[in-house]
Amino acid sequence: MKQKDFSKLDDQQLLKENKLAKTLLIAYSIIFLLMILSAIFTTTVKGIGFFTFFPLFFLPIAVVMWINSKTYEKEIKSRKL
């Protein structure tokens, strides 16, 4: 994912982007949790297969989204908003 230059955003845009990033992170976390639960269920019923490791393919996206959210919050704190 392409990193944005947060210092070029004005205050309103930064707050809007932060809210969007938090919402997307929460939604993605719920979906990711459902994938993990599905993988555990499938593994217990059918044994180890492709869907056992399926959530691992989406883990880097979750990490990037989390880091992006933390970067927004760091910029907001530096601007004292």
Rank of each mutant, 00 (worst) to 15 (best):
L25D: 00
F54R: 00
F6Y: 15
K70W: 03
P60D: 05
L20P: 00
I76C: 04
A62W: 12
E75D: 04
K2S: 10
I76H: 03
Q3P: 12
Y72F: 15
F32L: 06
I26S: 03
A39E: 01
N68L: 06
Q13V: 01
T52E: 02
E73A: 07
T42N: 14
L14G: 03
M35E: 10
T44F: 14
M1W: 10
D5F: 10
I67A: 08
F32M: 14
Q3V: 08
L56M: 13
Y72W: 05
M65L: 15
F57N: 01
N68F: 04
F54A: 07
F54D: 00
I31C: 07
F41Y: 15
G49Y: 07
L20N: 10
M65F: 10
L34N: 12
T42Y: 09
L37F: 14
S69E: 05
F53K: 03
K16R: 13
F51N: 08
V45C: 01
N68R: 15
Q12C: 02
E17N: 13
K74M: 06
I48V: 15
D10Q: 08
Q13R: 13
T44V: 15
E75V: 09
Q12D: 11
T71K: 15
I30P: 00
L14N: 05
S69L: 10
F51V: 04
D10C: 08
I26A: 09
S29V: 03
L34S: 11
T43D: 03
Q13A: 14
S38N: 14
T23P: 00
L37S: 09
F41P: 00
F57H: 02
S78D: 07
I30C: 06
T43W: 07
T71R: 15
I36S: 01
K74C: 00
A27D: 01
L25P: 00
T71E: 10
G47P: 04
I36L: 14
E17F: 07
L20A: 12
Q13S: 14
D10M: 05
K2L: 12
K22C: 02
T44C: 08
E75K: 11
D10A: 06
M35D: 03
K46F: 15
I48W: 09
T52V: 06
N18L: 08
K70T: 04
F57Q: 01
N18A: 14
I31Q: 07
L34I: 14
L33C: 12
V64I: 13
Q3W: 13
I67T: 06
A27W: 05
I48E: 03
I36E: 01
T43L: 07
Q3H: 12
I67H: 08
K70M: 10
I31D: 01
K8S: 13
F58N: 05
Y28S: 12
I30M: 07
S78V: 01
T23H: 06
K74I: 05
K16L: 11
K19S: 11
R79N: 01
F57I: 15
F50S: 01
S38F: 14
K70N: 11
K70H: 08
T42D: 10
T44L: 15
N18R: 10
F53D: 02
L56Q: 03
Y28I: 01
K80R: 12
T42H: 13
L81S: 05
E73W: 02
K74Y: 04
